[in-house]
Design a protein around this nucleic acid. Structure first.
Lengths: 144, 144
DNA sequence: GCTTTATTGCAAATAATTTGCATTTCCAAA
DNA sequence: TTTGGAAATGCAAATTATTTGCAATAAAGC
């Protein structure tokens, strides 16, 4: 594990932007702060609504544009779970996969080195090099 | 490899439809025949174009509607790979996952019982019951 | 402070998919 | 084998998620 803290500061994001020669605007700061809190995986609209509470001038386009930039810079990840809009997540911890609660929509993170390794093996056998991958489990709480 | 037949007949589909009290129309027959050939994972538009060659009266809506019905009946699977429209696949063989060639868009099927088992374990640990899941590897051919 | 250029908001455009409705067609029963 | 009623179709318009053009605004280095 390379990172000791569970949720990094907005300044991490700012560093990313600065490093890419991009500007740190008022609206970006607001959006980034929300993402930096972490904890959940909001979609663009949710992000927009939360941001609007802090800065009513913000627009949905800006949210989308900011997500695109941050994704390109590798600072966030975009997930498109089944049958829904894209949802975004701050990338600070190590890679993980997701279990989506079908009843609540909640996203639970997990990680399995064994699965990671198996994936590599499989790709290799097929003559491929993995660029990215996604593993999503959709399920419901077992009430037994 | 655990697959016995490589492509089932259209009549399998017809059985599904009949069994559900649904009608077998000219356009459905055409669409189903295309899917039954198997071999690839066409999206709605591709399906529509191929179908239109055999029956020019067919409409894109009908393709979408047919996909929805068949999906509900469990006769096909809908995949939404990263950044693209949904693609459909005839369900005749056993479950498998997908490796998407990022350069060609080709879809390679694979399956790993070990991964399947690990997924179950993980869900159980988290207190969940898996309803469905998806595992997709995105990669490029290794040219070493 | 001033200037340059990235960024913004807004509205309009796109892409994928769904839906309302009038019309056609399937198919089971007569 | 005709027929009646429900299911399915085609078309166009509606939705949903996201992107884009453009004129106005605002960061940031000087």
């Amino acid at each position: 594990m390379a990172k000791g803290r569970q949720n990094s500061e907005t300044s991490d994001f700012e560093a990313v932007l600065r490093g890419a020669g991009l500007r740190i605007t008022r609206q970006r700061r607001v959006i980034l702060a929300i993402l930096a809190e972490g904890g959940d995986h909001p979609d663009a609209l949710a992000l927009f609504r939360r941001a609007a509470r802090q800065d009513p001038t913000i627009s949905l386009s800006t949210v989308y544009r900011t997500m695109k930039v941050l994704e390109e810079k590798g600072a966030i990840q975009r997930h498109t779970f089944e049958g829904g809009p894209a949802r975004f997540e701050h990338v600070d911890s190590q890679h993980h996969d997701h279990l989506i609660d079908l009843d609540t929509g909640a996203v639970i993170e997990f990680r399995s080195d064994r699965i990671e390794r198996l994936q590599e093996e499989i790709a290799k056998e097929l003559g491929y090099e993995i660029v990215s991958h996604r593993l999503e489990l959709y399920g419901r709480r077992r009430k037994d």
